[in-house]
Design a protein around this nucleic acid. Sequence first.
DNA 1: CCCTTTCGTTTACAACTGTAATCTTAATTT
DNA 2: AAATTAAGATTACAGTTGTAAACGAAAGGG
Lengths: 147, 147
Amino acid sequence: MAATEIAVTISDAEWRVMRIVWTLGQADSRTIIDLLEQQHDWKAATIKTLIGRLVKKGALATTKDGRQFIYTPNIDEQTAMDTALQTELDQMCAMHRGTALAHVLEQTELSRNDVQELLDVLNKKLATAPAEVACDCLPENCERSCE
Amino acid sequence: MAATEIAVTISDAEWRVMRIVWTLGQADSRTIIDLLEQQHDWKAATIKTLIGRLVKKGALATTKDGRQFIYTPNIDEQTAMDTALQTELDQMCAMHRGTALAHVLEQTELSRNDVQELLDVLNKKLATAPAEVACDCLPENCERSCE
DNA sequence: CCCTTTCGTTTACAACTGTAATCTTAATTT
DNA sequence: AAATTAAGATTACAGTTGTAAACGAAAGGG
């Protein structure tokens, strides 16, 4: 029954809300609003809108608690992150993805464990890595290639 | 004078157009339309709109060639890729970025050179990598932490 | 010189986003 | 009980995006 965690699309502003709820595990609107008002120049009404949209999209679940709601994540944070990143990368030229990832890795702060995790993945790939990955920007039959 | 390559935002559909032009180096609308019609279910009019928007945004430059235009990229492909990926990653929890990158690396086809390039970056980072990267989803003063 | 094709521009239109005010209703306070 | 506050729902509104038709001008074919 694979949790109906179909591809919910979360907008940039909505990500901010999700991050709060993911981090706290659950939260009522007051908490979410208080925290976000500290991070952004958003009015309470704006945050309420975002929460509402996330509920409608199915990214947040609600549990009635007396007069108000408790919001909980309905989708997994790591999964959402992986998917968003993968989707972004997949729309770019296959030939340059590796370099893009290298550049991003370089700019990203990583813990020793992260680095180790990444090294492991790469070492495992080394064995079967192809000599090169072709550009996939043009239609199949087109023999043009990128430089 | 650093090419006025300020942050142009390219939408998903527009990326498809840019990829064609990046790959060919330059192209007239006929070429772009022909190639994209093979990859997508887009009408010529749709592609024209996308080209028009990219020109207006400054992502494509035009050179008059008789009656029509020759379009050339006004922004660098690799830079655009790096930036888009970085921007996406930066809006996610710092603590989980490493894992997200590992998952994406795993799914991405990489050439031997790519893998090597990535290994180099990581090995260089290993020395100074912190024991851990803290979650940055909550406001500063908030001592809550993710698990 | 007309007809047709082609190219770029203008207009269209709904969905999604960022940003927020207002309204309803229930709860809290005096 | 009356007044105030808080929570969620409704409405707003402009800009971006996906998707495309229509239009005007120029070029090419007869």
